[in-house]
């Protein structure tokens, strides 16, 4: 008798069994989605990769006008000891005309304008721009030049010409002392 009762349709043509089917399938779908998540999330950075310690860089050996490349989280970081002329050049730029509008002051620490710290990863497709080593092609704006697809960056690491959409990224950093920089 109960079977018949269960299949009796309500006024809207929906019966108890329909509800049970939808509820069971829905519950199963949620369960399957939950089970899939670990298989997707395992691809994200593992705990040891995330735990990569921050690095410290000794700045005392970098003369004015020179730069170094250090490795942080598997990526190059450019540190440039800018000349007064380069700082002036970076400040004089009309921000409104830039692709990615940032003033030079937004990209350096106050009082430490001579130190420019940026990720050495072109924001186009991830190549390492040239311009840190003496004798490198620094592009048309005296900063960096990416040889892959021809992006030019200025002395503040801002994109000025070429296909890259954004300025070179500035990582989180602080001065541990006057000559020691801590990245990360």
């Amino acid at each position: 008798m109960s079977t018949i009762e269960n299949t009796v349709e309500g006024d809207d043509g929906v019966n108890r069994r329909d509800f049970l089917h939808v509820a069971a399938a829905g519950f199963g779908a949620v369960g399957a989605a939950v089970a899939v998540w670990p298989f997707i999330d395992q691809m994200n950075p593992a705990a040891d990769t995330l735990a990569l310690a921050s690095i410290e860089v000794d700045l005392s050996k970098i003369a004015v006008g020179e730069g170094v490349v250090v490795k942080w989280r598997g990526k190059p970081v450019f540190i440039r000891h800018r000349t007064a002329a380069e700082i002036e050049e970076a400040k004089a730029v009309d921000v409104g005309a830039l692709v990615d509008k940032q003033t030079d002051a937004e990209r350096v620490l106050p009082g430490k304008e001579e130190w420019l710290v940026v990720l050495g990863v072109c924001t186009h497709l991830g190549c390492v721009p040239l311009g840190t080593k003496t004798g490198d092609d620094r592009g048309e704006f005296g900063g960096w030049f990416c040889p892959c697809h021809g992006s030019h960056y200025d002395t503040s690491g801002r994109i000025r010409k070429g296909p890259a959409p954004r300025n070179l990224e500035v990582p989180g950093y602080a001065f541990a002392s006057d000559t020691v920089l801590k990245i990360g």
Binding site: N44, P45, T49, R73, G74, K75, V121
Partner: peptide, 26 residues
């Protein structure tokens, strides 16, 4: 590097997808 970075062009979730593909920061 270049090909996986293509996915960073996707709005909003692009960078997360690239990190997911890499399993790291590069």
């Amino acid at each position: 590097t270049v090909i996986t970075n293509l996915f960073s062009a996707i709005p909003v979730v692009g960078d997360h997808i690239v990190t997911l593909l890499w399993g790291g920061f590069s």
